[in-house]
Every structure is written in C-alpha cells, then in structure tokens.
Design a protein around this nucleic acid. Structure first.
Length: 645
RNA sequence: GCCAGUGUAGCUCAACGGUAGAGCGGCUGAUUUGUAAUCAGCAGGUUGUGGGUUCGAAUCCCACCGCUGGCUCCA
C-alpha cells in the first residue's frame, strides 16, 4: 500500500498504520506538530487507520494549514458538549447536532426543559478549560448501525438515534473523550489538550433540524482559533461590524429612521438619505440610457387575474399583500415582471425591435415574518432597480454580456470586489433540456468572454431558467448578494408572448430578469456599513461645509457657499456661535468630506482653509481652485479625495 | 411564528421595593473663538402597554407590543 505525498513522492505503508506513523517516518518534529491528515480529499484523524487501498493521496495537516480549523472547531464543539453535560447532568442533556460553521461552531442541546442563558457561558467556558487541561485522549471507533442504536439507547440520546436511522452507510463513527461519547463524522484532534483559544459567543433557540414543528433546542455558538491574535482579531471584527451597523449610523447621520409601530419593515428616508438614493439613481439612469434601456413605470396595485396568470397566486401568495374594492381583489406587486409583460403584450413586436430592454425602479412589497426584519437589509417594501430584456435565444449571450459589463460599470465607483455564481438546471424544471443547455452555454460564454471567474452551482437555478448571481464584498470582507441575472422561459410561455420573425411566423421571446443594485434600500445599507457613513464625495449628502471662525466672517462664508453651489457642490454653513474646534468636530461627526474654514486671512485673500475628514489640513487655497477640484471629484465619482494622494 | 435577551428624556446610560437622575443633543443668554467638545441657565419622562402583588413598583409577578441575537452552514 502506497501513499502519495503532496510533493509527488511515495511512502510505503503497512496495514493498520495511522497518519501519526506516517508523520513519524518523515520526522519526529512533524509527528509532534501534526493535527490530522487529509486522505483522498477526506479529513482523517491522526490515529485513524488508513484505508486499505493500493494508493491514496495523503497530506498531513498542521496548524499552518487552512484545514486545521476544521479539526479545532469540531473538537471544540465536543468539548463544549462535554462541559454542558457535566454542568447540567449527563442524564438531562440530550445532544442535537454540533457542526462547524463559517466562523466557529455550535452545538444544540435539549436540557430537560432547562434554558441556557448568557450568564451560563462563563461557567461552561470554565468547565471547558478544565477538560482541555485534563488533556483527554480522543478516540474514534466504528459501530454497525444496530450497535450504534444500542449504544445511543443506553446513553438515552433520542436525537442521535433519529440521525443514525437516517444514515445510509452500514457503519457509523463515534468519538470518545473521557466519559463523553458522541456520534460524529469527525475529524478531531488527537486530544482535548490540543485546542487553543476559544470563546463562547451567544445562546439562542433553534428548532431540531430547523423545522418549527420540531422541539426547540438550546444552541450555543462559539468560536476558536489557533493563535490568540486570530481570536482577538475575530472578536475585533465583530466589534467593528457592530460599530458600522447601518441601523445605528443611518439615523445618526439623518439618512433614515425606522418606525416599527407605524410601518414595520418599511423605512422612512429623510432628506439626506434621499440625496444619497437620488445620486445612486442618477448614476444608474445614466448607465442604463447608455446601455439602451427604456425606463417604464408600472402600477403598484394590479388585479388578481394578472397574478393568477403569472403563477404568483399559486407560488407566491403567502408573501403578497392584497386589497379589495368593488368586490375585486387587487394585489400589491411583489415583483415587476408581470407589469412589464403587460406593456410588451400591448405592442406588436417585430424581431427588429429585439432585444427590448425595459427598466423600472419598481417599488415592490413582500410580506416577511416579523422576526426576520432587519434594518434596511430585510424589509417588506423596497425598490428594485429592475429590468426585463425580451430577446431571442440567439441574443442571450450578447445581452448577458451587456448586463455583466453594465454591472461592472455600476459597481466600479464603490470599490467593491465581487464574485459571480452561475446556477444551472435543477431537477424540477420547465422547458426542454436542449434550450436549457443552450441558455447555460450562452451564460458561460458571456462570462468567459469577459474573463470573469465564476463558481458553478449545479442544479441551483430557478425552475424557470438558469441564473447568475453577483456577490460583493464590503470592506470587512463580508459577502452580499446584489445583482442577479435570471433567464426565464416560463413567463413568455404563460403569457403567450410573441414576436414576428423574419420568416413572417410568430416566435416566442426569452425574458431576462435582472437587478443590479438589487434593492436600493439594501444597497444603501451596505454602502453605509462599507464606508462607515463616510460616503465618497459624490454620494455625500453635504459635500462641503463652510466654517466661519467668527460672526464677522459670515458674509464671506455665505459667498463661499454660493460659489461652491454654482459649481454644483452641495454646501452648507455652520454659523453657530461656537469655537472653530467645536464646529470642526461637528462636521467630522457628520462625515462631511470637505471643511472649509474661513477667517480674516481667507477673507482678505479670497481663499479657504481646506480640511479633509481624514484630518488632513491643506491650509489656505484659492476658492476657485478648490471648487473646481471638488467638482471634478464629484463628476468623476472618485472614491477618494483628489487632495488625498 | 418560535427560543433567549431586552425596553427609563431625541441619543448613551444610572437609579434595581421608599420622592426618576447624569452626560451628550436641543433651546436661551453670555462669549467672537483658527482645525475633534467655551461657559451658564432652561425645557424635556404617566419608566413600551395593560393587569396583578404591596402601605408603597421603573424595580417583583402575568399578559400583550416593540427591539436585538438566533431558528439545518445537517452525525
């Protein structure tokens, strides 16, 4: 039996040997550092016998490898479960599942009616430290399903029994550390002493298997890192994210407020928020005009018959709002497509008219359960920067490429990185496979021709067509799904859409649904967090604030403001009877990009003293020169100040 | 909807069974100020709502409402 190592060399192995033995053959030091292994792409415990095969791919995992976290987090989850059992009593604690997640791990417990609260966390952490100190050996063993069920019955673990019953394999694996035994796929570290820095983060309820008909378990979330500095960095990241929370910054900066008592899930935008939204819209309109879109407006409320025909009545009714007058039922639109189709159908379309691109800043309403509402990110009413492209199958590739390029241009001024996902035909789909294949290839070619990298989500497309999703990353690296491009074969079918072909025969067009910001409200929320409220100048509600030093400078300050405004710059003045420091601080807290301080010197020379919100003091500069520079910065939608090198 | 936490002035928080308070913000006045907080005064709350326990409730109990975090990233 041979192991193939990452460097391409081979090592001979005896039957029954484990990764640790391999490590020893390479070096004693490596044997000490090794945490586990990856065998044929699978995580493998350090002391688990290697598979009996001619040849396997083999790689040791040490703290330096990215896979190490998987070992640490899994083991940490078990240590936490063991601690909880010790504290609450082994008989009382029924274990749910304890997987690793993106930033740590969790474990679900059913503790005989008892609730875990945040106050319990320090106690649990303390017990966990004890377990780590005990340095219990972690052993893996396999049982047949019957034996496993027997064991779990003895341990009185009903949830585990349910899980075992559903496992298709004949054998299941268990892990044991001290008195603690748990059904688990692994992988795990060789002993509890190997884990390093951890912290329990929060407690919450979670339904068994996420189903609300099932009992609710107690979930504890925690995180663990190999280096202390990494744990600290993560905790700092959480703090940072909290500091940037748009729900806090938004109202603070006078952008919007939420009034759940009056309109839950429906934000109120204040003058400054509308300035930002309008800038986003203006930019959007400019690009859409350039890319050949025609803007339309469709009604907010439309008769139920339209929604029956579109299929929303059958598939989306739960999320819709309704209103009734004269015995007729009307629905508040949750999507814009049916409205766009109404316009399409009212025209007689020739192949010469295609592609037809209709765009709309459409306000849609969707019912969301009260518990899931969240600031501007999850709302019940929002504005989609929507568009529908009606085209032939042959035009799909060009159109999708156009949308992708437009998206690129639209995202450019925000400095976002993004990644793309392509979702293909699901099991349950409509339309013939040939059309699907053609459509997916068109999408791929469009992306390829732009040199865009993308990930394929096999079978994750909508039942009516494949789709492309854009995820942007904000300054903290958090991903947000924004743009989406969806092909649709179904709607044209349902509404019997047609166009007259060159052959003088009627043909069925394809629809492309697409939204780029996604939702204006949500995009604004993302921007607030991304920039921490310090918008680039073109978006800033107030772009320049004039700060007179004393009352006698108010007249000149007024003049400065007028000059700025004549250049199209949004400017205001702080004439309050306060010190310059006070007014500078106020402007800083409002995150205004330019502070123009004017006193005797400036008044005499027709200059302004420029301060950037970064704190940089540019001293006196001619007013005209500053105005033109700021104007340039705004017109070019620059990310940073022209004065910041 | 469900679980946990939470709700006191516009904001941040104190008082935790014995008369609701501070800072910031706001307003008024003084000050005329040179790059992140000048000073003084004033106004501002039926302590989320409703019920209960108590001589007495922001405080303890119950119900409701809102908010926050979470509710398959599957052994």
């Amino acid at each position: 039996m041979k192991l193939r190592l990452p460097d391409g060399s081979y090592i001979e192995m005896e039957e029954g040997e484990v990764p640790k033995d391999v490590a020893k053959k390479i070096s004693e030091g490596l044997a000490k550092r090794a945490l586990g292994a990856v065998v044929d792409g699978q995580f493998w415990d350090l002391t688990r016998p290697l598979p009996l095969k001619e040849e396997v791919e083999f790689r040791l995992v040490t703290e330096k490898d990215p896979e190490a976290t998987e070992f640490f987090r899994h083991t940490m989850a078990h240590i936490m479960a063991q601690a909880v059992m010790r504290i609450f009593g082994k008989e009382r604690v029924k274990l749910g599942i304890g997987p690793t997640i993106e930033n740590g791990f969790y474990y679900d417990f059913d503790i005989d009616g008892a609730k875990i609260t945040e106050e319990d966390l320090p106690r649990i952490e303390e017990e966990m430290r004890k377990i780590i100190q005990e340095d219990l050996k972690i052993e893996r063993f396999e049982l047949s399903k019957e034996e496993a069920l027997e064991l779990m019955k003895r341990e009185d673990q009903p949830y585990k029994i349910e899980l075992i019953r559903e496992i298709p394999d004949d054998k299941v694996s268990f892990y044991k550390q001290g008195e603690f035994v748990d059904l688990c796929r692994g992988p795990h570290l060789p002993s509890t002493g190997r884990v390093k820095h951890f912290k329990l983060l929060s407690v919450s309820g979670a339904y068994w298997r996420g189903d609300e008909r099932n009992p609710m378990l107690q979930r504890i979330y925690g995180t663990t890192f190999i280096k202390k500095s990494e744990l600290e960095a993560y905790l700092k990241f959480v703090e940072e994210a909290k500091r940037r929370d748009h729900r806090k910054i938004g109202p603070q900066l006078g952008l919007f407020t939420l009034h759940p008592d009056v309109a839950p899930g429906l934000p109120f935008f204040h003058p400054k928020g509308v300035v930002v939204l309008n800038e986003l819209i203006e930019f959007w309109r400019m690009l859409h005009k350039k890319w050949g879109y025609q803007e339309i407006l469709t009604p907010l409320i439309m008769h139920e018959r339209l929604w029956h025909q579109s299929g929303h009545w059958d598939h989306y009714k739960e999320n819709m709002y309704f209103t009734e007058k004269e015995n007729q039922i009307y629905a508040v639109k949750p999507m814009n497509c049916p409205g766009h189709i109404v316009i399409y159908k009212s025209m007689s379309v020739s192949y010469r008219d295609l592609p037809l691109r209709f765009s709309e800043l459409g306000k849609v309403h969707r019912y969301e359960r009260s518990g899931v509402l969240h600031g501007l990110f999850r709302v019940r009413g929002f504005t989609q920067d929507d568009a529908h492209i009606f085209c032939t199958v042959d035009q799909i590739e060009d159109e999708v490429r156009g949308v992708a390029e437009l998206t690129h241009e639209l995202y450019a001024p925000f400095g976002f990185e993004y990644f793309v996902e392509l979702s293909t035909m699901p099991e349950d789909h409509m339309g013939d496979e040939k059309t699907w294949e053609k459509a997916i290839n068109a999408l791929k070619q469009a992306l390829d021709s732009m040199g865009l990298e993308y990930r394929i989500n096999e079978g994750e497309g909508a039942f009516y067509g494949p789709k492309i999703d854009y995820h942007i990353r904000d300054c903290l690296g958090r991903p947000w799904q924004c743009a989406t491009i969806q092909l649709d074969f179904m709607m044209p079918e349902r509404f019997d859409l047609k166009y007259m072909g060159p052959d003088n025969v009627e043909h069925r067009p394809v629809m492309i649904h697409r939204a780029l910001y996604g939702s204006l409200e949500r995009f604004l929320g993302i921007l607030i967090e991304h920039f921490e409220g310090a918008f680039p100048t073109w978006l800033a509600p107030v772009q320049a604030r004039v700060i007179p030093i004393a009352d006698r400078h108010n007249g000149y300050a007024e003049h400065v403001k007028k000059v700025l405004e004549s250049h199209g710059i949004r400017a205001d003045i702080d004439t309050r009877s306060h010190t310059t420091s006070y007014k500078v601080r106020a402007a800083q807290l409002e995150k205004i990009p330019y502070m123009l301080v004017v006193g005797d010197k400036e008044m005499e020379s027709g200059t302004v003293a420029v301060r950037l919100r970064s704190g940089k003091d540019l001293k006196q500069m001619p007013l005209e020169k500053v105005s033109i520079a700021i104007k340039e910065e705004i017109e070019q939608r620059l990310l940073n100040s022209v004065f910041e090198s």
